[in-house]
Write a protein that binds this DNA or RNA. Structure first.
Lengths: 256, 256
DNA sequence: GTAGCGAATTTGTGATCACAAAATGACACG
DNA sequence: CGTGTCATTTTGTGATCACAAATTCGCTAC
């Protein structure tokens, strides 16, 4: 592990002027701000920590197996341990993190059985949600997706795995979010949080050049308002990407 | 709101001898125990609160729409607000509870759209998990399920809705848990936590006498090791129970 | 009697403290 | 040189405090 990377997050609270504070500045906490203007009055700190850790997981900044400590994360982000505790509990409840019997929390290791289940669940749920979203994908939606996909192509050529993962997530969830789903969407969210960190380790080994996506087929299906074609494109995209990952995991054993 | 029910939980920490304490008894907290013997060394309080609230939700002791306060729950169970906070965060992450913009947390109201999504997700996931569980359901499994189903029949006749819900959950998850699933099972767990409270309010209105379940068909399919029959039985059981609930929600509008 | 307003209470949130268990490291002994 | 043991540090957990926002309640004015 050599040197501890000081900037694992690009999210350090600015330490001089925090985005949102409620304290009256007569405390000595790590997040000190004399007169911060707050955007939303209540519960902004936890939300900030939550999105920070979530995007960290989705872009693979957390390594599976490496323990995540409350105080460590709190110090990195620049807040007290309290909001971090709650965020880690939340993510553990979504199976994005794993609490070991000692109380230590870490990114779960990927196993073949787990991988098969995630793949199965994705194939069941995501085409369904895409179908639900299709009626809401009108107007500029196809254009937005095309823009994201262009950026993805650029990342694939340049080999920027982190940006690729962020954009790939953005592409899929631009579709899914349109469904306004309050049930299926969180389930799929949980699934992505589970396989993303593992995905990242694979890309780190073999690069992203091999990847091809079915996004253009999906965009075309959306433009044509073709439900079955959209389902097929989503399904094919999942199978391509995950099938590729699956071969990796089977060849190398459970992560490493 | 009349009188506050003092015994909403049958789970009051005994106040004299707690099950598991780590504190050295020189504190003045609400959970005081001079020399409690502890079963599991670490993190037992939160686990206790978690199962308490979870079973409370599954058996319908929480009313949709009624706010759940941290301090209130903590006082009822007899612990400090701290573990309750984390448990509520966990359950909110599983969409079993809803955090309103003010920070107040309550059981979400059921809406027709939500209901459709839960139904759809259950139909997609639960037959799949039952199929995965089937190879592990040998030996006395069918006998256990038969015993549970007998109790269910008794509850249906006596109209004990709370016991019915607890046993119905036990029946389904006796099957699902056998799959040793680490991915699909939590997803289905989340779904049950979402519709159970609403289910309870319906039963409270119309009783349980109308219900018939497909559990016997499922047991027979397990005995015969018939995958398709098991899938069909689970699917039919979901459709019967939820279809019945669906007619209720559509006739009366979003909960009430 | 009712509507509007202000005080008092409730409630969520972040911070800090205390303690025990686990992890880590150093050191002595074989 | 390896191994077991003990001291030190790290870490999770529960409790408590302080504060602000939101809610609730009571009172007054019309």
């Amino acid at each position: 592990m050599a040197v501890k990377p000081d900037h694992e997050f690009g999210f350090h609270r600015t330490r001089k002027k925090t985005l949102a504070v409620r304290r009256s500045a007569l405390q000595s906490g790590p997040a000190k701000a004399p007169a911060g203007q707050r955007v939303s009055s209540r519960g902004t700190t936890r939300e900030m920590v939550d999105t920070a850790v979530r995007t960290g997981l989705l872009t693979g900044r957390f390594v599976p197996g490496k323990p995540v400590t409350i105080r460590g994360l709190a110090a990195e982000i620049g807040v007290s341990p309290m909001p971090v505790r709650e965020v880690l509990q939340r993510l553990a409840a979504e199976n994005a993190l794993e609490v070991k019997p000692n109380g230590r929390v870490q990114v779960p290791d990927m196993t073949p059985a787990r991988f098969d289940e995630v793949l199965k669940a994705r194939l069941l749920l995501e085409p369904e949600l895409a179908e639900l979203a299709l009626p809401h994908l009108f107007g500029d939606a196809a254009g937005e997706l095309k823009a994201i996909d262009d950026d993805i192509d650029a990342c694939l050529h340049s080999g920027d795995a982190e940006s690729y993962m962020r954009l790939n997530h953005a592409f899929h969830f631009r579709i899914y979010r349109a469904s306004r789903s309050k049930v299926l969407l969180p389930l799929i969210d949980s699934l992505w949080l589970q396989f993303a960190p593992f995905m990242r380790t694979v890309y780190g080994r073999v690069g992203t050049a091999i990847l091809e996506d079915r996004h253009k087929e999906a965009i075309r299906a959306i433009e044509l308002n073709d439900t079955q074609a959209l389902r097929a494109a989503i399904k094919a995209d999942i199978l391509d990407g995950m099938g590729f990952l699956g071969r990796e995991i089977l060849s190398d054993g459970p992560t490493g």
